[in-house]
């Protein structure tokens, strides 16, 4: 029964997103909103592997880039509609996730992280040399007209990503509360001990990697239509990796709400700064917040809230 408040919350969120798409006139709201929602998905997906299982993935950009380019490829090849682009991206992302999951067989801690950076650069290089999707110069895409109830493509993208947010958060929450989450936490705390007590560590890690990868690539896919342009350098930009990680750490990795809070806080600040100052300041804020939080509040906003709650309770 503890799912009821969550379901109500999800329903309210979706209704608000759809209503906004029909009521709000200003297109810019959706331009900015899309990015914020996209980062909520990325951070939530990152946390499934990085937070619960303790395998720090620096390859979010690989999954985003692969998602974007899967969308580009199926769109160019068959003119696939948006939902098919996202499904295809999710499938490829899950496959890549399994590949990254196999790395965990031999690599732990920082070596796993470095290997995921390697996966990113290798994927980027392969795409750069793939002429069909435009190579290094990138590719222009022409948006088809929006589907029936929506009056503009951006609003449609916004609602689609809002749905993806609900799927991602529901999955993350389910994993956290179920036996899968318990198993992953056991892996994080002591993998050998977990294996010895009969936790199927490899199976769980592969599952976490695949789900996390599928969500990240699915979140990346609509960016192709959002920008109507894709090029390897920005599709595989390291900023995605560091942002997803930073948002999770800033929010707190122990609970599914952490990455959501972190993403809202950081992405909103960044959107605001991009408009008012410049996109460089954006990256600066990312760096400064990341450093401040890992130094000052290692358990993120959740940790701060918990401590405040305890202090308040003692009084």
């Amino acid at each position: 029964m503890r799912s009821v408040p969550f379901l109500i919350g999800a329903a309210v969120f979706l209704t608000a997103a759809v209503t906004a798409a029909f009521v709000v006139r200003n297109e810019y709201v959706f331009f900015a909103g899309f990015v914020i929602l996209q980062f909520i998905v990325l951070a939530t997906a990152w946390n499934i592997l990085g937070g619960y299982a303790g395998y720090v993935n620096f390859g979010t950009s690989a999954f985003v880039g692969v998602g974007i380019y899967t969308a580009v490829a199926v769109f160019k090849y068959a003119g696939a509609p948006l939902y098919l682009q996202m499904l295809a991206a999710a499938a490829v992302g899950a496959a890549l996730g399994l590949g990254v999951g196999l790395l965990t067989l031999r690599l732990r801690g920082i070596f796993f992280s470095i290997a995921t950076v390697a996966v990113t650069i290798i994927a980027e290089t392969l795409i750069t040399n793939w002429k069909f999707v435009g190579g290094a110069t990138g590719v222009q895409l022409l948006r088809p007209p929006p589907t029936a109830p929506f009056e503009s493509y951006i609003k449609m993208l916004f609602v689609v990503v809002a749905v993806l947010v609900v799927i991602a958060v529901a999955l993350a929450r389910y994993i956290q509360l179920s036996g899968v989450g318990r198993g992953l936490r056991a892996v994080r705390d002591d993998e050998v001990a977990a294996e010895c007590s009969g936790v199927p560590t490899l199976k769980l890690k592969l599952l976490a990697c695949a789900i996390s990868g599928a969500l990240m690539s699915a979140a990346g896919a609509p960016a192709a239509m959002y920008l109507q342009f894709a090029d390897p350098v920005s599709a595989f930009n390291l900023n995605y990796s560091v942002s997803a990680l930073a948002m999770s750490l800033i929010g707190g990795t122990a609970h599914w709400i952490g990455p959501v809070l972190g993403a809202i806080l950081l992405a909103t600040t960044q959107q605001f700064l991009t408009v008012t100052i410049s996109s460089e300041v954006n990256v600066l804020v990312l760096g400064v917040m990341l450093v401040l939080f890992v130094v000052g509040a290692p358990d993120g906003i959740i940790g701060l809230a918990k401590r405040a709650w305890q202090r308040w309770g003692r009084r």
């Binding site: 720090v56 620096f58 920082i110 992280s113 560091v242 990680l245 930073a246 750490l249 990256v283 600066l284 990312l286 760096g287 400064v288 917040m289 990341l290 450093v291 890992v294 130094v295």
Partner: peptide
């Protein structure tokens, strides 16, 4: 690692 990435940025 996160800390040093932050400093890098």
């Amino acid at each position: 690692l996160a800390f040093f990435f932050g400093i890098t940025f």
